[in-house]
Amino acid sequence: MAVQTKRGGATGVWARWVIANSLAETVGLGSALGIGVVLFPYLQAPGVLAALTTAAAAILAGTLIEGAVVGTAQWFVLRRPLPDIRWRSWALATAVGAFIAWTAGMLPVTLLGADTEAGAGGAAEPSAAAVYGLAAAMGLLAGTILGTPQWLVLRRHVPRAALWIPANALAWAPGMVMAFVAADFLFSGSPGATIVLLAIATLAAIGAVVGAIHGLALVWLLRLARPLGPPVSLSAG
Results as ranks from 00 to 15, higher is better:
2 A>W: 12
7 R>K: 08
9 G>W: 15
11 T>M: 12
14 W>N: 01
15 A>E: 08
18 V>N: 08
19 I>G: 10
19 I>R: 12
19 I>T: 14
19 I>Q: 09
22 S>F: 04
23 L>Y: 11
23 L>W: 11
28 G>I: 03
33 L>I: 11
33 L>V: 01
35 I>E: 07
36 G>Q: 08
39 L>A: 00
40 F>Q: 15
41 P>S: 07
41 P>M: 04
45 A>L: 09
47 G>Y: 05
52 L>S: 11
58 A>R: 01
59 I>R: 02
64 L>G: 06
64 L>P: 00
67 G>K: 13
68 A>H: 03
71 G>E: 09
72 T>L: 14
73 A>S: 06
74 Q>S: 04
76 F>Q: 13
79 R>M: 14
79 R>I: 14
80 R>F: 12
80 R>S: 13
86 R>Q: 09
87 W>K: 12
89 S>E: 15
90 W>F: 00
91 A>Q: 15
92 L>P: 02
96 V>W: 05
96 V>Y: 09
98 A>F: 08
103 T>N: 08
105 G>W: 06
105 G>P: 06
107 L>H: 05
107 L>D: 09
108 P>K: 13
109 V>H: 05
109 V>Y: 00
110 T>M: 06
111 L>G: 07
115 D>P: 02
120 A>M: 13
123 A>Q: 13
125 E>C: 09
125 E>K: 10
127 S>K: 00
128 A>C: 08
128 A>I: 13
128 A>E: 10
130 A>I: 07
132 Y>L: 15
134 L>I: 01
136 A>S: 02
137 A>L: 09
138 M>V: 15
139 G>M: 06
142 A>T: 14
143 G>V: 10
145 I>M: 12
146 L>C: 08
148 T>H: 13
149 P>E: 11
151 W>R: 01
153 V>P: 01
153 V>C: 05
154 L>Y: 06
155 R>A: 04
156 R>W: 06
158 V>A: 00
161 A>W: 04
163 L>D: 12
165 I>F: 08
165 I>G: 00
167 A>E: 07
167 A>C: 09
171 A>Q: 04
177 V>C: 08
177 V>N: 02
178 M>T: 03
182 A>R: 03
185 F>H: 07
185 F>L: 13
186 L>E: 05
186 L>D: 05
186 L>I: 15
189 G>S: 05
189 G>T: 02
190 S>G: 06
193 A>K: 04
194 T>D: 15
194 T>I: 13
194 T>E: 15
197 L>E: 14
197 L>R: 14
199 A>C: 14
199 A>D: 01
201 A>W: 03
202 T>C: 00
205 A>P: 00
206 I>C: 05
207 G>I: 04
209 V>M: 10
209 V>H: 04
210 V>N: 04
210 V>W: 07
210 V>M: 05
210 V>I: 13
211 G>I: 11
216 L>V: 08
218 L>M: 15
218 L>P: 09
219 V>K: 09
222 L>P: 14
223 R>D: 15
224 L>N: 11
224 L>H: 10
226 R>L: 12
228 L>N: 15
229 G>E: 11
232 V>H: 12
234 L>A: 14
235 S>Q: 14
236 A>G: 05
236 A>I: 10
